[in-house]
Write a protein that binds this DNA or RNA. Sequence first.
RNA 1: GGGGCGGUAGCUCAAUUGGAUAGAGUACCGGACUGUCGAUCCGGUGGUUGCGGGUUCGAGUCCCGUCCGCCUCGCCA
Length: 603
Amino acid sequence: MLKRTHMCGELRSDHVGQTVTLAGWVNTYRDQGKGLIFIDLRDRDGLTQVVFNLRDVDEAAVNEARSLRREDVVAVQGLVRTRVGGANPRLATGTIEVAADKLEVLGKAETPPILPDEHEAEKIAEEKRLQYRYIDLRRPRMQKMLRTRHEVMQVTRRFFASHGFLEVETPLLIKTTPEGARDFIVPSRLYAGKWYALPQSPQIFKQILMLSGCDRYMQICKCLRDEDPRADRQAEFTQIDLEMSFVTRDDVLAIMSEFITTLWSEILGVDVGEIPVLGYAEALDRYGTDKPDLRFGLELAEISPLAARTEFKIFRDALSKPQGVVKAIRVPAAAGTLTRKKIDGYERLAREAGAGGLATVKYTATGYETGIAKFLEPIADELAAQLALEAGDMVFFAADTRAVALRVLGELRVALGRDLGLIEDAFRCLWVVDFPMFSYNDERGRWESEHHPFVMPREDQIQRLQSDPGGCISSSYDFVINGSECGSGSIRIHRTHIQKKVFEILGLTPQETQLKFGFLLEAFKYGAPPHGGIAFGLDRLIMQLTGVTNIRDVIAFPKTQTGADLMTGAPGPADSEHLKELSVRVHLPKRQIPEPETREPKP
RNA sequence: GGGGCGGUAGCUCAAUUGGAUAGAGUACCGGACUGUCGAUCCGGUGGUUGCGGGUUCGAGUCCCGUCCGCCUCGCCA
């Protein structure tokens, strides 16, 4: 076999005169007839033009080159020389070419079902790209993604190692934990009828590591949650998981801010600047969400006191509800640009978000026009002053319970920012802190953890666990970048009596607590340091760093929305022998679930 | 589980109100061409219109069911 001497993106004018050997895939071929054939050879590094010329090589080699087709794998030996036909400025190697004298076909390709062309990739059905992932991954952009992902992992390990973190692996086959997402479970062969769970996160193990004196832990680990995927969510995903002993919240935020700054600097050469900290309540009030996109303004305004002075029934009805509010969003200079159709779309969006409708008004030099203009007369000047209105602005109103109004305007804000082109090309990070400890689930009639059951209340809030669980503020924090939640953590409970109290609020009986978390409570008894940490969503960080909106594009081998792997055909059936060993019997529901189709390439 | 969009040649798409032999680009096959570079030019092969049923003289098109993919709500401590 011809041994490779260089990569396909490597050769420059400096190499002219050298005899080299390249190996890779035939990206394109251009047969000029008689005895002149060009091959663009591709590997993960780039493209190099190889030329077969009857004037330089024997006829057998030219004939073999003539039979080359796209995606054939070949090795080529030849002389690097300046291009006879002029440079190609679109290629990094565009000034040179390799004049082949030896060709070895290492892997002849059948006609490929899809081609790894960047200009085609956007059009090819994702189903096909997933089915033939090995071809799709040959695209430069996908190679770039794999490389970026690799670099992020390298930077991460280097950063945390240099800050005293130990990389420790935690088990995949673990005990199922109640609450949280649905677990994937694995039958135990040695304990008939018993099951392992796959981890939703290494949460308990990393806390145990703190009790074990590990002091600082990190791991890049797979987490599995059996819930329906979304554009930014897979059942199987990767976390950068971290935990530190003897720290306060601000200690964690400081070092994690430094990590993010380092990451963006090393991967993109971008300075993300000081990362601001925003309270949960303030984030909701100003942006209608706990993961605000700070790349544009359009902040929400609270106008309940003014709204109360109008005769508008929608406003008055909303304000008479418990937690009723009227909130407004000023859209600068939108009166001329927002079409009727767009505004109708926003009204539909508002209804889908739970609102009864969406009140609108235009502000002009002569006052309010259209929509609910007439109702605003009693508060005309004060409203204009509070919202700092200028002629040409529009205002959207949401009047409902606080939760609904915030959700409606929060979603509207994002849609407006996008539609009006207000989103700046930048990375805007922030920490959101001071989340509530619990939220009340009306359906289930009980308190649930806002984050998870091991989150410590903020130090000044501990007594509220007893008196006012709903008002109790936690020590947790979320990392948000450009409106995407990419990390989440907290200071943990390390005192048994507080942990027991939290379990009690969550409705676990002492017996259940003992059964499910007895080992953890026991562990706390024998010397537990205060500790806290965070987990970053690696996939989401890579999405931000590579500018893609689909999590499947940053995972080498992702699954579909129904949890299938279109390349391998997983999930598949287990044979009955195997099931018998595991003491598992399959009991299909009445409506049979068909096997996922295995996608064998046609012969 | 709900809502929305989509599925026609290997790939990307078209096909009028239900009407004749389902077309185009590209890939592939054959031919021409010694400086191309998303090569070009000429010719050709290629179809279970996702699958099953129904309505009709006639279905890619209409109806019912079902499968697959994407977006989304629920869900995601």
